[in-house]
Design a protein around this nucleic acid. Structure first.
Lengths: 350, 350
DNA sequence: TTGAAAGCGCTAACAT
DNA sequence: ATGTTAGCGCTTTCAA
């Protein structure tokens, strides 16, 4: 067995309580005793038993994170940022990748609740507020990431998705595009918001609103969305006249769109401009460097960690907070028809 | 507070023990009692307290994973695969991203040990076996992933790195390249192995061995290695004559190499062929589709999970096992000078 | 088939 | 400044 407080206490002829106090920097300990205990702890490489500590304090000093897909850079970046942030405060991160499966997500959340994580961070694959009923019942505080649920008054950290749709579409209009299509994502808040922003931008001009043309990615299990984007683009290419710009729900689908356009023998951006969403790593190294809306995933991670730590310690349950990141567009060749002041000078590679 | 066994027991006029037995499917329980208890548990949404259970059983039903960088698709894929594999068995995954920092790694490992994870999976940023002394002392079994440490008899799951270097270099030779350079990685087993394979391949021909030319990526903190690859390529381009092929330690550095070559006004692969390592997602969508050695990260994750689960339950400590994945080359335009039978038919996008 | 007693390793409240 | 007592929620052992 591992070394226990009892062992150290016995060796040093002290009580367990004294040893415990030393461990937690209790003030009522003489310098001498403290030194003796600390020394022996070092020598024996003592590690306190968290299970025992958790049992009595009710805290687990761990934070749970559920994401739809850990491989997706957006979520990986969030996870990484959270990990870095909480580790300095002695917290651990329990991560679970739900594979975009609501069933799995539900089950994993139960797991994490049973393990008494101090806070739960969820980038949910579900969309109905009913799904969160069970969570509301629990006393574990939780934060929704990226995707929120209508009618659920809860902590939320994500991107202003309407703004995403707005700046992407506005950018395309500025580039002279007039038949701008949108490939929308599944029925989650992010897709709805981006669609809404797209529509707002189309309606914004002085004259009559630009025509809207929306197709759906479908909710296939293919997380990369490359295939979905390809299929959706094929549909758009067969319309007459075909669009002169496509704003895509995410970068993977945009890559599929690029492929479809190239196969059709059309040029990007001359015939059709393309804008994605997420600012994929190495977007600047692609065959057609991809214009994309950056969602600041690192910021989301940092903010989430900060809020999580606050919730973890606060005994009372503070009023839910919403935090919206403002997205930024990163303009690259896939949409650059003329020089605009919007062009980011040092097109970030992240 | 959450519902406890005691509450259920009292309500149903049973003892805690009986409830506990029902929970764990103990056979000595009458069908009727079992049903009653199970029903009430459902109604109250009872979640057993893992801390209490762990304290007494000594198992935490959790597995720890330490990776250098969660954002790197290679490690993200491993994490995802492990997560999927262990979740079905009721285990949780504690992930920590060490940022390639040995200090952080050490600290995180201590954390995980203190939390009594049942198994520890480590893709280590360290290279000396001395670093693992403290772990040897602990009773927690651990598995090294991807990078192993010489002289440490331990569980290991990774790629046959010599084979990686061999097939990459052989491929370049087959393509007619004769001045093949290698940009090697930092002093870890993976970099050493690939270098070794590179050398073996150069020596393999009938005539006298092809000349070797090796530069180092340097151990900069830049995980993407894009900058490092660029710098290393610049060095190679200034040699006279410059190489006609470059085999890179990883894909990010290969991207930097591509950039350097293009800036120098040379063609890929006509003037210089490039091969990377890791088979980055969307490698086929790059400006220069990148030939790369796939390391089967998903397999590594699955194997790691399987072995981890075995170690988690076995009371005795089985003899350490090593498991080497055989890498596969995915040939794309960056190295394709002539048609070869090596060209994978359906150039996988994963 | 059920339950009483003991205790996992630690912390909190209260002596001394 | 140090120790005593009690108990966190559960499992294990053994008795009924």
């Amino acid at each position: 067995m591992a070394v226990r407080m009892k062992d150290i206490a016995k060796e040093l002829d002290l009580s367990v309580v004294t040893v415990s106090k030393v461990l937690r920097n209790h003030p009522d300990i003489s310098e001498e005793t403290r030194k003796r205990v600390l020394k022996r702890m070092k020598e024996l490489d003592y590690q306190p038993n968290f299970a025992a500590r958790s049992l009595i304090t009710g805290h687990s000093w761990s934070i749970g994170l559920v994401v739809p897909d850990l491989l997706h850079p957006f979520f990986a970046q969030i996870a990484k940022a959270i990990s870095a942030e909480i580790r300095t405060r002695g917290y651990c991160l329990l991560i679970s990748s739900s594979d975009e499966d609501p069933q799995v997500e539900e089950q994993e959340i139960r797991q994490l609740v049973a393990r008494r994580v101090d806070v739960l961070l969820i980038a949910s694959a579900r969309s109905s507020s009913a799904d969160f009923k069970s969570l509301e019942g629990q006393e574990v505080p939780y934060i929704l990431l990226d995707r929120h649920v209508d009618g659920l008054k809860t902590n939320f950290i994500g991107v202003n998705d309407v703004e995403v749709g707005l700046i992407a579409t506005r950018h395309l209009i500025e580039q002279g595009c007039r038949r701008i299509a949108h490939i929308r994502g599944p029925e989650v808040s992010t897709a709805r918001g981006r669609l809404e922003g797209y529509r707002q931008a189309l309606a914004e001009g002085k004259g009559r609103p630009l025509p809207e043309q929306v197709v759906s990615l479908g909710s296939s299990g293919d997380h990369r969305g490359e295939k979905g984007g390809y299929a959706a683009a094929m549909e758009l290419l067969h319309s007459n006249p075909h669009p002169d710009a496509i704003f895509c729900f995410n970068d993977p689908s945009a890559l599929g769109v690029v492929r479809a356009i190239e196969e059709a023998g059309l040029r990007i951006p001359a015939d059709i401009a393309v804008v994605g969403c997420g600012n994929l790593p190495y977007g600047d190294m692609l065959r057609v460097p991809l214009t994309s809306v950056d969602q600041g995933s690192e910021n989301i991670g940092r903010l989430a960690a900060t809020l999580a730590l606050r919730l973890a310690v606060s005994k009372s349950r503070p009023a839910p907070k919403s935090h919206l990141i403002t997205p930024k567009i990163v303009v690259r060749a896939s949409s650059l028809r003329k020089n605009t002041k919007n062009l980011s000078k040092n097109s970030p590679m992240k």
